[in-house]
Design a protein around this nucleic acid. Structure first.
Lengths: 366, 366
DNA sequence: TGAACAAACCGTAACGGTTCAGAACACGGT
DNA sequence: ACCGTGTTCTGAACCGTTACGGTTTGTTCA
C-alpha cells in the first residue's frame, strides 16, 4: 500500500484544475455532479487526482460552503464511564449511532471537561445539531449548546422550552415498580441511587439533596418512590437513601453494604439502576442473605445482565430512545413545533422480589 | 431561557464588526486574543454579540482557516452492536474518549454503512486523524481513510506499513490460555469464535475459513490455538470450531448448543470472547453440565461480568488500549517514525476450568 | 440556413473566519 | 523637537470549496 506522498503542499481542487487546464468548477463537478461533465474528462480528472495524491474535496471547506457539517454532536458532560459502562447508556448511544449511520452523518462526542466550566469544545464543534444526554440540569455545556444556532434534542431530561425531547415516563414507571414492592408487603425499604449532583456524596442522601438533585432522571425516580410509599403509609423520611457518585457494580455493592449495616431490618432494596442492583445482589450473597426470601432487590433499565440474573426491574427500550433522538434531530430543520416522544416502559418481575419473610398480613391478597 | 432569535440571517463576525464600527480582526481578537484589544472594547464586542445572538466564531470557518478540525474520527465499520454491546469494545471506546477529552478534541464516529462500499462518509468527515478499530483487513473504508492526508492509528489489526498500531499480543496471550487448558489435561476441545468474515456463517468454520479470516484478532487467536494444540498432539482438524456472526450472549449459547450436540464428548470449550463464553456457561447450565467438573469453559477479554461469573479468561487492559490509541494519534504530526504499542495481557484462572472428569493421566503433573 | 436547445465547461462571488504586517496614536525620556 | 516603545486597531490576503449564472460548442429540425 503506497501512502500518498506529500508534495510541497497537499494538492487542492485548484491545483488539480491548474494541472489539468480546466476550471475548479469542473473538478468539483467531477466529484459532486458526474453528469455535468463528459465521462472522459471526469476519468481524466480522477486519474490526475490519484497521481497527485488528491483524496477528494476537503471536508471542512466543503462544509463551510454547503453549510452542512455532516455530523451531529453528542453532549455527555462528565462521567464518561457512566456513558460507556452502563448498558442502558450504551444502548442509547448505539441507537443514536444507528440513526446517524442511516442518515450517513457522523456522531461527534463532544468533550465536556469534567467539572470544568470550559465550554469551548461545545462552541468549537463542527456539528449540525446536538443531542444532549444525561447532563445535569444546570450544566454550562448545555447552555452553550443552546446558544448555537443549531437544533437540539434532549434525552432523559426535563422538557425545555421549545426543544425536542425524548425519554420514558420515569415517574409512571417508577410508580409501577414501587407499587409492585408495596403490593408484596414491604414497608421497610431502602433505596440505592446514582449521583444526584456534581459534588461527590458517597453516603446517605438527605431529603433536601434528593429534591434538589440536578440529574432529572434520579430526581424523578426518587420523587415517584416517595409519592408511592407515602401513599402506602410509609413516611419517606424513614426510608434510607444511599447515593453513589460512580456507577459500577462495586459501587452498588458498597452502597448496599452501607445501607444494610445501618438498617439491617430493611426487607427490600430498590435501586435506581440495574448496575447498582447487581452490586446489591452480590453484597446480599456475601452477607448470606437469600434473595428474594430474605431480601427483595429491584433494579431499573432492563439491561441484559439483569435479565440473566433474574432481576426484577423496569425495562425501557434504550435502543429506541437513541434512535428516536437521532431521527428527531435529523428530521428537524423545517419543522417549527417541537416534538416530545415518550417511550413505553415495562415492569419485568423476576426472581429477586417476593413478600418479606416476616410479612405482616396486609389487606389485599398476594 | 430565551432562545436566540434568528434574524433574517445569523449574525457573523463581519456583521458584528459592521454594527460596532470596528474591523473583523478586532472582533476575532475579542474571542481569540483578549490581550490584543482594550478591555472596554472587548466588553462592548461581547455585549453586542449577545444582543445580536452571535454565539462566537463559526467552528467550520475557523477550522478551514486554522487547518484543525478539532476532532478525530473513529472507524468502526459495520457491526455497531458489537462496538457498543461488548464491554471489551466499549472499554476501548471509553479510553479513546478519555484521551480525546483530555486533549479537548471531539471524537467522531464515522458511519460505515454496513456491507456498503460507500466510503463517502469517510471522505467527508471533518477530522484531524483516524483511529481504525476492529474492521476487517480488506475494508474499503480503511482504504479510504488511508488516502486522506491525516495520521491514522490502527487498533487490534495487523501492522500496516508506516502506521501506528496498538493492540495486545493476541497470539502470545492465546497460547498462554491454551497451555492452561492443555495443562489441565484436556484433549477433546471445542472452540467458539466470533465472525471471521463479512459473510454470515453461523455454523462450523472450515479450516480454510479460519485461516482466511478477515478479522485479524480472530485469525490470530485461532492460529495460536491451532499451534498450541497441535504441539500437544491434538490434530487441529479434529477440533470443532463454531462461528457466530452476531455477538450476544445468546449467540454464545446457541453456538455451544450446536457444538455440544454434535460433539458431546468435548471436555473444554474455548471461546474467543467472554460474551460467547457467558453464553456457553448458560447453555451448559441448561444441559445440566456442571462447570468446571463436567465442562471447562474459557473466555477472552476479561470483562466485568466475566469476572463476576468466575470465568477463566485472558484479561486485557481495554481502557488503556483506547487511551494509548488516542494519545498516539494526538501526539502524531511531527513524529516521523511509526510507533507500535503492545499491551500486556494476563491469564486469569477462574472457577470455570479444571481437569477433565475422565482425565487420562498425562505425563506432566497437575 | 438559421433558430432552438442541450451538453459541456467556466468565472466570479461568496462561505465565515484567522493571520500578519503595519498604521495611528500616546507617552516618557533625552 | 526627536526618538523609541508600547498599545490598540486595521487592511488585505488567504483557507479550499461550491452556488449561481453565464458562455461556448455542437446537434437537431423547420
Amino acid at each position: 500500500m503506497n501512502r500518498p506522498m506529500r508534495s510541497r503542499r497537499q494538492a487542492t481542487l485548484a491545483s488539480l484544475a491548474a494541472e489539468l487546464g480546466v476550471s475548479r468548477t469542473t473538478v468539483s463537478n467531477a466529484y459532486n455532479r458526474p453528469d455535468q461533465l463528459s465521462p472522459e474528462l471526469r476519468k481524466r480528472v480522477l486519474e490526475t487526482a490519484k497521481r497527485l495524491g488528491y483524496a477528494g474535496p476537503d471536508p471542512v471547506a466543503r462544509s463551510l460552503r454547503t453549510r452542512k457539517a455532516g455530523a451531529v454532536g453528542l453532549l455527555l458532560t462528565e462521567n464518561l464511564s457512566y456513558a460507556f459502562r452502563d448498558p442502558a447508556a450504551t444502548g442509547v448511544l448505539e441507537g443514536l449511532a444507528l440513526a446517524c449511520e442511516d442518515a450517513g452523518v457522523g456522531l461527534t462526542l463532544v468533550p465536556g471537561s469534567p467539572g470544568n466550566e470550559d465550554v469551548a469544545a461545545v462552541q468549537r464543534a463542527g456539528v449540525d445539531g446536538f443531542v444532549v444526554y444525561s447532563v445535569p440540569d444546570d450544566d454550562p455545556h448545555l447552555e452553550a449548546a443552546l446558544q448555537r444556532p443549531v437544533p437540539t434534542v434532549i434525552v432523559d431530561q426535563p422538557q425545555l422550552d421549545g426543544l425536542d425531547r425524548v425519554g420514558p415516563d420515569d415517574e409512571a414507571a417508577t410508580v409501577e415498580l414501587a407499587n409492585h414492592v408495596v403490593g408484596l408487603g414491604h414497608r421497610q425499604v431502602g433505596v440505592l441511587c446514582m449521583r444526584l449532583s456534581s459534588d461527590r456524596n458517597d453516603d446517605f442522601a438527605s431529603l433536601y439533596r434528593q429534591q434538589d438533585a440536578h440529574y432529572h432522571v434520579q430526581r424523578a425516580r426518587l420523587a415517584a418512590l416517595q409519592r408511592t410509599f407515602e401513599a402506602a403509609g410509609v413516611p419517606w423520611d424513614s426510608v434510607p437513601v444511599v447515593e453513589r457518585f460512580d456507577h459500577h457494580v462495586d459501587d452498588g455493592a458498597s452502597a448496599a453494604r452501607q445501607l444494610l449495616d445501618k438498617h439491617p431490618r430493611v426487607t427490600a432494596l430498590i435501586c435506581t439502576s440495574d448496575i447498582l442492583a447487581l452490586g446489591a445482589l452480590a453484597e446480599a450473597g456475601r452477607r448470606g442473605l437469600r434473595v428474594p426470601a430474605d431480601l427483595t432487590i429491584t433494579g431499573f433499565d432492563g439491561i441484559g445482565e439483569a435479565t440473566r440474573a433474574g432481576l426484577t426491574t423496569v425495562h425501557q427500550p434504550v435502543l429506541e430512545k437513541g434512535k428516536a433522538a437521532g431521527k428527531l434531530l435529523l428530521g428537524a430543520g423545517d419543522r417549527v413545533a417541537s416534538k416530545v416522544i415518550t417511550l413505553p416502559t415495562e415492569l419485568r418481575v423476576g426472581t429477586t422480589s417476593a413478600p418479606p419473610r416476616t410479612a405482616e398480613q396486609h389487606w389485599f391478597g398476594p
